[in-house]
């Protein structure tokens, strides 16, 4: 690939035995130049075909009118112009923002649970894995569990509400509450995920620093805020990354719990895109692709922030 592949130790080997070493070295150098290419080729090729190229193709398709089978008609920016006047698009966009904001609650909630469970009583390992349980289950099953939980008349949640005197609220059939109801279902596994990240983080907090801070009289919230949380930064970074990505990727729960309803009020961009491109409402691939491009653009903002941060760590690591 390039000359920078020549690592210092190659030259070191060449230093000793003059003639014989130089032929071996040439072979070694060539081999070392080729090796990364060969090792990378199968994985990178698959990734380019199935992930990188489709991103470009989707952007291209978004400028066309296409039903998925027939000929594509170039229509320029018409799909995007249509989006600007599409009520359903704005509803989905608004719901995505609500998802993003509410979903972030998983990070502090996960930290609280991790602090609660960071003890060494008997059986704590079993407790920790049971608390983590919701993350292992498929979102489809989580969705079904919560549909049952919210079911009108007999659902556990509904019963609780009427017991507290709120009357019979059908969460998933109510335009005002439906998105929040689905997000709460999504928070359940997400909190468990953040909890496990923080439990690992807490495990690695330096005991010396805690002791030193204790001697200085720090305890409780002060200790948490000034000593513990700064040391948990790597865990917090990952928790934020996976939560943001999870919020913007939300699809399964919407699909199984409400199918976007009632009257499209719980749609998110990912779901609306699928509906436009592939459902019984018709195969509008071009229009669907333009929705996906918008979602992709939103996600790219976050991805770029993450990458810049990771790149910085990477540079400091050397």
């Amino acid at each position: 690939m390039s000359d920078s592949i020549l690592s210092p130790n190659v030259e070191r080997t060449a230093g000793g035995n003059a003639q014989a070493a130089s032929t071996t070295t040439r072979w070694l150098v060539n081999q070392r130049r080729l090796a990364p290419l060969l090792f990378l080729a199968p994985g990178a090729l698959m990734f380019i075909i199935y992930v990188i190229a489709p991103i470009a193709q989707s952007i291209w398709v978004s400028f066309y009118e296409w039903d998925g089978i027939g000929a594509k008609t170039f229509i320029g920016l018409a799909n995007y112009v249509e989006l600007l006047d599409d009520e359903a698009f704005y509803v989905s966009l608004k719901n995505n923002v609500i998802w993003l904001v509410m979903y972030m609650l998983a990070v502090p909630a996960g930290l609280l649970m991790a602090i609660f469970l960071n003890q060494t009583i008997t059986g704590i390992r079993i407790y920790k894995s049971l608390f983590f349980f919701p993350f292992v289950i498929s979102q489809i099953v989580v969705g079904l569990i919560f549909s049952w939980f919210y079911a009108p008349n007999f659902g556990l949640f509904t019963q609780l509400l009427s017991f507290l005197g709120f009357g019979d609220v059908a969460v998933l059939a109510d335009e005002t509450y439906v998105t929040y109801g689905i997000i709460i279902a999504g928070l359940w596994p997400q909190i468990a995920y953040c909890m496990i990240l923080y439990l690992t983080g807490l495990n690695n907090v330096s005991p010396d620093q805690i002791e030193a801070a204790r001697l200085d009289g720090a305890k409780g919230w002060k200790m948490l805020w000034y000593v513990i949380i700064p040391q948990l930064r790597p865990a917090t970074f990952i928790a934020v990354v996976v939560t943001v990505i999870g919020a913007l990727r939300s699809f399964d729960l919407v699909s199984i719990m409400t199918d976007g309803g009632p009257w499209g009020s719980s749609r998110v961009l990912s779901f609306y895109m699928y509906e436009q491109a592939l459902s019984e409402y018709g195969f509008r691939m071009g229009y669907g692709a333009s929705i996906a491009v918008v979602l992709f653009a939103i996600m790219m903002v976050f991805i770029s922030i993450f990458i810049v941060r990771m790149l910085k760590d990477e540079r400091e690591g050397y």
Binding site: F47, Y50, P54, V61, L248, L269, A277, I303
Partner: peptide
Amino acid sequence: FKSNLLVFFMFVAGNFVPFQILMVP
């Protein structure tokens, strides 16, 4: 090699993209 980090971050970034941008192709 020169493009090492570039290839690495291609994998990382691709891993985060929304599924819908890949769906049609």
